[in-house]
């Protein structure tokens, strides 16, 4: 099949976006602070907004209720058998909190919070994770100064170097093993949906 191509100079389709339209839709925030609106919010105000809008799912201290996401705690658990991945223990950048809370929270009423609300909530989540003190005020000015504890533990996909060489060997076809034993059964964990089980293994988050 042939590839679709554009004429010299383009199609001239669509229309130029107005500055207002871009401002309305361009809601993303980056680690370097790009996208942050002017504003600020304190841990104290954050706690108040949180208790009205967030706590009934995520818990008063962001500890999570029932199966709703846990947002605080879990420091030092990342190499445990059951790591607890939270904003404090796992997230590499604070900008992600601001970005995500505005675009997707509260669940069911996205993009309803003002910039000051989101600064305040973000400050409260830093506080819940012992990253700032209770008198902290977060703003577009000091935002980039906050470093997240786990940032250094992220690294770029290295499968090409660490895995692919090992997984491109020609495999054995005949008499590859002497013995084969069954080492694990799904029926032991017993969580197949048909059975109505409540689940034992990890979820998909």
């Amino acid at each position: 099949q042939d590839a679709a191509e554009a004429p010299e100079g383009g199609f001239g389709l669509g229309r130029e976006a107005t500055t207002e339209e871009v401002a309305m839709w361009d809601i993303d925030i980056r680690p370097d602070g790009k996208g942050l609106p002017v504003g600020s919010g304190s841990v104290e105000l954050g706690e108040e907004i949180w208790s009205y809008n967030c706590a009934h799912c995520h818990g008063d201290f962001a500890e999570g209720i029932d199966r709703w996401p846990v947002l605080a705690g879990g420091e030092g658990t990342l190499s445990d058998d059951r790591p607890v991945k939270t904003i404090g223990s796992y997230w590499p950048y604070l900008s992600t909190v601001y970005d995500y809370v505005y675009r997707a929270m509260p669940f069911g009423y996205s993009q309803s919070l003002s910039p000051d609300d989101v600064y305040a909530i973000t400050a409260y989540l830093l506080y819940s994770n012992y990253i700032v003190e209770d008198d902290f005020v977060l703003s577009n000015e000091n935002f980039s100064e906050i470093a997240m504890p786990n940032e250094e533990n992220f690294f770029m996909d290295d499968r090409a170097e660490t895995e692919l060489p090992q997984f491109t060997a020609e495999p054995c076809m005949t008499d590859c093993k002497e013995q084969v034993e069954i080492t694990a059964h799904a029926t032991v964990l017993d969580v197949t949906p048909e059975d109505g089980g409540e689940g034992g293994g990890g979820g998909i988050d």
Binding site: P31, Y90, D99, Y100
Partner: peptide, 11 residues
């Protein structure tokens, strides 16, 4: 630069 949003950090 990449955005490092929630679905490429937390998840």
């Amino acid at each position: 630069e990449p955005w490092h949003h929630r679905e490429e950090t937390s998840k």
